[in-house]
């Protein structure tokens, strides 16, 4: 129980700190990055680059491990099919991300920065997820 919650709690906390330092919780910063054809702000490319670099190393380590340090086994995605659903969903996500300058992680992290605004975004996002769940069940 402790090991099942402490690792995700630590991960989420470091994640939230990284999002905030990197500027992902600042909608103007995010929209500045997405303003590629205007007044482009490359900051988020450094966020992405730093995160991908560390994770590329982590994947190399993972391939040599039989099981995670605090768990019984790896539960990782293994699909490789490119579907209209994947592309359509990602296209929609990009539109929503650009409109308000928030994606899911920063939405939750921003609950500690601008609670009212972040709560509206998060509740609406969960509503959207529920919508997909209801339509598909």
């Amino acid at each position: 129980m402790i090991r099942e919650t402490l690792v995700p709690l630590a991960s989420g906390t470091i994640f939230g700190a990284g999002l905030t330092i990197g500027g992902m919780t600042d909608p103007a910063r995010v929209r500045g990055f997405l303003d590629l054809f205007g007044d482009w702000d490359p900051t988020l490319a450094f966020v992405m680059g730093g995160a991908v670099l560390v994770m590329a190393f982590a994947w190399a380590v993972q391939r040599k491990m039989l099981r995670p340090f605090f768990g019984d086994g790896f539960a990782l995605p293994d699909r490789s099919d490119i579907t209209p659903r994947l592309i359509g969903g990602s296209a929609l996500f990009g539109i929503g991300w650009a409109i308000a300058g928030l994606c899911p992680g920063p939405g939750f992290a921003a609950l500690a920065i601008a609670p009212a605004s972040a709560a509206i975004f998060v509740i609406a996002m969960l509503g959207g997820m529920l919508l997909v769940r209801l339509i598909e069940s």
């Binding site: 969903g89 929609l92 929503g96 928030l102 509503g127 959207g128 997909v132």
Partner: peptide, 8 residues
């Protein structure tokens, strides 16, 4: 934006 992000 939230609804679109959730669905997407």
């Amino acid at each position: 934006a939230g609804v679109i992000v959730g669905v997407g």
